[in-house]
Simulated scan of single mutants.
Amino acid sequence: MKFTIQRDLLIDSVQDVMKAISSRTAIPILTGMKIEARQHGITLTGSDSDISIESYIPAEEDGIVNVEDIEEGSIVLQAKYFPDIVRKLPEQHVEITADENLKVTIRSGKAEFSLNGQDAEEYPQLPKLQTDDSFEIPTDILKSLIKQTVFAVSSMETRPILTGVNLSLSESKLTFTATDSHRLASREVPVSSSSVQFSSIVVPGKSLNELNKILDDTEETVEISVTNNQILFRTKHLNFLSRILDGNYPETSRLIPEQSKTVLHVKTRDLISSIDRASLLAREERNNVVKLTTKDGNILEITSNSPEIGHVSEELSVQSIEGEELKISFSSKYMLDALKVMEVDEVKIDFTGAMRPFVIRPVDNPAMLQLILPVRTY
């Protein structure tokens, strides 16, 4: 195997693929990165058997030559050393050759490295997903779906199914839902003309976080294909394969209250700042509890009390308060997490009493919601 490649392209690809490589794998060869050279381009592969990532560098694109002098072949390189070597090479061009004894030489300018490779034949074959049952979604929308839900997955392995985000697609609407049983985040977006339907597949939160880091903010589309135990996200130069979690995701729709007793309209940034200040004294407490009380004249009082440290209270003017008077306590962390990902100027919050979950939605987009369970304070 032999090829000469632009160093920047190689660095980008290597960084993407590294997100799937773990040093703590039961299969030793998976600590390496597979490199495959074909006349049309170079493919890099990394996998930890939960996530597999393939990054493709075409030999030529838009009239620009990325890779030249290609002699076909493949090799597996130690991922512990290869990325650092590539990053520190002196010149823009990198020549990589592998001989029949699996010795790999990496040259750039006057620098030359020699590494021991492994036989690519021993690298596990990635499952090839049928992409007939696939649908497409703009990359920027997929990224915001992930960002607005994945933070609410559970970090506790006691209920593994809750460490993932539940995806469902029906009637051309794609829904992402995540919950750790104290809060819930959900968003629904239309998908253009999809014949594909599935009611519930659960993708590990860790996989979606890595995917979100790799995807660029573009309006190009991502193609998504689902089988019974794998999901594939595909862009022009990237295949991102994740396993799907086993088990039944809880029915979350019945958690969302149908009616409300108190409704607030409030500027998101004002509420974030106020709760952030109130939580300064609540940091030491187990769940950073902040109390919200409605007052006459569209005023909210936001307070936090920590017996050992002190007390904070602040009045906040809001756009409107309708319905019953309310006193409710909640985790400031959960509230701030929810408000920060919504990226809207104004939110509507529906309360159904002090001990019932409350729902936060953007004023102009009911398809996105955050639900938070209050905290009992006696």
Score class of each variant (00 low, 15 high):
T177D: 11
P28C: 05
I27M: 07
E343T: 12
V165P: 05
R234G: 06
P124N: 11
R286L: 07
T252Q: 12
A98W: 00
F135T: 11
S199W: 03
Q6H: 11
A185S: 15
R243W: 00
V363D: 03
V17L: 02
Q130M: 06
I161E: 03
T43R: 10
K348N: 09
K206E: 06
V86D: 02
V344G: 05
S52E: 09
I272N: 11
V341Q: 09
T218S: 15
E171F: 09
L30R: 02
T177W: 03
R24A: 09
K2L: 14
N228C: 00
E60G: 00
R254N: 14
T158N: 13
G32W: 06
T4I: 12
T31D: 10
I137F: 07
R183I: 09
D12T: 11
S329E: 01
V222H: 07
I328Q: 04
D84A: 14
T294I: 06
P58E: 08
V67C: 12
G41W: 08
S114I: 14
S195N: 14
I35K: 03
Q78W: 02
T97F: 04
A354G: 04
I244W: 05
E61P: 02
S242M: 00
V203P: 07
V203S: 02
E61K: 13
D217S: 14
E285P: 00
S55W: 04
K147F: 08
A282G: 03
T218K: 09
N298H: 12
S172H: 13
L339T: 03
T158L: 03
L238E: 12
H311A: 01
T303N: 07
L77G: 05
G117E: 01
G353W: 12
D133Q: 14
Y123F: 15
R187G: 00
E112L: 14
A26G: 10
I272K: 04
L238T: 13
T179C: 01
T45S: 11
I106D: 05
K110W: 08
Q319R: 10
Q125G: 00
I244S: 11
E36I: 10
I231G: 07
S253P: 01
V344P: 02
A178P: 07
H237V: 02
D180H: 06
I51P: 03
Q125N: 10
D8M: 04
A59E: 07
D119P: 07
I321N: 11
L339R: 03
D345R: 03
I224E: 07
I70D: 02
S155R: 04
G323E: 06
E36R: 11
